[in-house]
């Protein structure tokens, strides 16, 4: 492995974003990737500037802990969900709650804008919100309609829905929406709803799926599935085959420590250029695997302990190799950068 090919990751701590008084459950980049929005168990949502490490704005109004966030493609609004079974649509500049969507019976774990941009239609990506809940349903909400009922409820799930992804067409393919919804849940199944084809594809993982991450470049083909059997799988979406496995007790890494994720939702991420897979374990260790060889690339092939508690969310900057966010249950968000050379 030559030096040029050496897989790197942002390993230098640039900022530690203190502010949340409880576990940080999620952190998301906005669509210009200049700001990030975090939601925590302290019922607050905070807008940060990861470059300067400054807190830009705090959003208070959620009654219970915030579990999921998503920012509209136009960056004007964002939506949050959490324990209170309601979905909120926030106005970013004013911090007002624009709308509330109610219908779930359980807490809402994750929320997503459809993000499928239709050419020529204004705000088309932010017109539909998908929410996955503990009540094992995915509800699809129409932001533009005044109707308070969801457009549709996906009831195929047998257990709590933990993660939703809406694959966009890759920029090489012209952007826009693929017309698909990918849902992962505790029932150990990744379901792909194809609106265009009218089909639903179930891929059984056989372990509670905590997060699914679509490949940024080839969302149609590749998906990363993290499950509670301490494994992160790279799956081929087209045929359901497994491309690679990371972590897990039977992982062929020679490292002494083993990746462990058995009870918390810890969102994994693709590294820059999809050359690596990033995951956090429940002790606050950061795992970086080579996507091809599935070997840890951290020094000494040991996980690097970056947080005190479980890492709940890893978000890598989509366009820059030198920025990464990790959120943890210890109440901090850390912004990582690559070593300046």
């Amino acid at each position: 492995m030559s030096a040029a090919d050496k897989i790197t990751y942002p390993d230098q701590l640039r900022h530690t974003l203190h502010g949340h008084t409880g576990p940080v459950n999620t952190v998301r980049y906005n669509h210009t990737y200049k700001y990030c929005l975090s939601g925590g168990s302290d019922k607050t949502i905070r807008l940060w500037n990861p470059v300067t490490g400054a807190l830009v704005k705090g959003y208070e109004g959620s009654r219970m802990e915030v579990l999921g966030l998503d920012i509209a493609p136009d960056n004007a609004t964002f939506t949050s969900c959490g324990q209170e079974k309601d979905l909120y649509l926030w106005d970013v500049p004013t911090g007002h709650i624009l709308r509330k969507f109610s219908g779930h019976y359980g807490r809402i774990n994750t929320v997503r804008f459809s993000g499928s941009v239709q050419p020529g239609v204004r705000n088309s990506g932010s017109s539909v919100i998908l929410s996955g809940s503990f009540d094992s349903k995915v509800m699809i909400w129409d932001v533009r309609s005044q109707n308070r009922a969801p457009i549709q409820t996906l009831q195929e799930g047998r257990d709590s829905v933990t993660s939703i992804e809406v694959p966009p067409l890759s920029s090489a393919e012209g952007g826009g929406g693929l017309g698909q919804v990918v849902v992962g849940g505790v029932d150990g199944t990744v379901r792909t709803y194809d609106v265009r084809m009218g089909k639903m594809v179930e891929d059984v993982i056989a372990a509670p799926v905590t997060s699914i991450v679509l490949s940024p470049t080839t969302p149609r083909e590749t998906i990363l599935v993290a499950s509670l059997d301490s494994k992160v799988r790279l799956m081929d979406r087209s045929n359901g085959q497994m491309l690679n496995t990371f972590g897990g007790p039977d992982n062929p890494t020679p490292s002494r420590a083993t990746f462990e994720n058995t009870s918390y939702r810890s969102k994994v991420a693709f590294g820059y250029g999809e050359r690596s897979v990033l995951a956090g374990d429940e002790k606050g260790g950061l795992w970086v695997w080579d996507i091809v060889s599935a070997k840890t690339v951290t020094p000494d092939q040991e996980p690097r302990k970056v947080h005190e508690k479980v890492i709940t969310w890893i978000e890598h900057h989509p366009t820059r190799a030198d920025e990464m966010l990790t959120a943890s249950a210890d109440g901090t968000i850390k912004v990582w950068e690559s070593k300046k050379e």
Partner: peptide, 30 residues
């Protein structure tokens, strides 16, 4: 069992029909 055995693919995949709501199709632009 197939998934446990790591035999992902045809064994673990089931495709079925699904009916999206008309409005959903419209919103997704399909």
């Amino acid at each position: 069992e197939a998934a446990r055995a790591g035999m992902f693919g045809k064994m673990t995949r089931v495709t079925s029909d699904w009916v999206p709501h008309a409005l959903l199709c419209k919103r997704f632009g399909v």
